[in-house]
Simulated scan of single mutants.
Amino acid sequence: VWNQPREEALFYEGYGPGDLDLVALAYYRYERIVKDLLEYCDQMFDAAASTEDREEGLRQMKSQFLPDDVVAIAHRSYDDIT
């Protein structure tokens, strides 16, 4: 989860403080989003999938683009380096 303060706190608790490579962070956030979108497309266009599974794939895909969700966070990551 990229947009929850508790998750961020747990990350730093586990890994400790450190300098972030902002270019790498932006890249890997976008890469993860693309992989997830491909999985959702596979789910939605799978001829053997149930209607419920297809609808869930669409719901998950749409949620990526909500304000303050992963796409917006990735864009902010990129904006931080440009």
Rank of each mutant, 00 (worst) to 15 (best):
E7W: 10
Q4A: 12
Q60H: 13
V1A: 13
V70W: 06
P17E: 15
D42Y: 02
G16E: 06
V34Q: 10
Q4F: 10
V71I: 15
I33N: 06
D21G: 03
M61I: 09
D21N: 15
L10E: 14
M61P: 03
R6G: 02
K62D: 09
Q60S: 15
E7V: 10
E52L: 07
E56T: 13
R54I: 01
V23L: 06
D69C: 07
D19A: 10
A48P: 01
A48H: 04
K35L: 14
V70F: 03
W2H: 07
Y30W: 15
E55Q: 11
I73Q: 01
W2P: 11
C41D: 06
L25A: 09
H75E: 11
C41K: 06
P5W: 03
V34S: 10
Y40T: 02
K62Y: 08
V1W: 11
W2N: 09
L58C: 10
Q64M: 13
M61T: 14
D36G: 10
Y40V: 01
Q64D: 05
F65T: 01
R59Q: 12
A48D: 09
Y78I: 12
R59H: 13
L22C: 04
R29M: 14
A47E: 09
K35E: 15
S63Q: 11
N3K: 04
Y12P: 00
E13H: 02
P67R: 08
E7A: 14
R76M: 06
E52M: 05
A26R: 14
Y40K: 04
Y12L: 12
A74P: 01
Q60N: 15
S77E: 05
E39V: 07
Q4H: 12
A9C: 05
S77R: 05
E52Y: 02
R32C: 08
L20E: 08
R54C: 01
G14K: 08
I33K: 04
R29G: 13
P17Y: 07
L37Y: 05
R76L: 07
R29T: 12
E52H: 04
M61V: 08
V71F: 11
E56C: 01
L37S: 10
V1G: 13
L20S: 05
Y28T: 08
A47F: 00
D19W: 06
T51F: 04
D19G: 08
V70I: 15
V34L: 12
L66D: 10
R6Q: 14
Y78T: 15
E8I: 13
Y30P: 13
E7Q: 11
D69F: 15
P5N: 11
Y40G: 00
S50D: 02
V34C: 09
R54W: 00
I33P: 03
L58Y: 12
W2S: 06
Y15G: 04
M44V: 09
E7R: 10
